[in-house]
Amino acid sequence: MSVINASIVRKIAKLACIAVTEEEVTAMVPELNAILGWGEQLAAINTDGVEPLTSVIAQSQRLREDEVTVPDIRDALLANAPEAEHGFFTVPKVIE
């Protein structure tokens, strides 16, 4: 287990793709420490031989015919995009 410092907060923010100001970093250090410190109580519990529970119901992958089942709503979907052109989502230039 570890103690969260400002540089770890900056790293997590980068992984999470959230821009943070130095003020936000400072505020988050004690908050994240408190929450994660609370989670550390779990380390003391014996879980030897216990399988992690990922789903509360019996999961079996259902298969279906490989057919189109939804109507073409391309234009309706693009209507929600901040920017779209020629039937595509558009983003800032990624290749110089």
Binding site: A43, I45, P52
Partner: peptide, 17 residues
């Protein structure tokens, strides 16, 4: 940290169930 937190929490979840 995945094992120490996330997997551990899922094991606790199993115990609770």
């Amino acid at each position: 940290f995945y094992d120490a937190y996330y997997i551990k929490a899922q094991k606790i979840r199993a115990l609770i169930a």
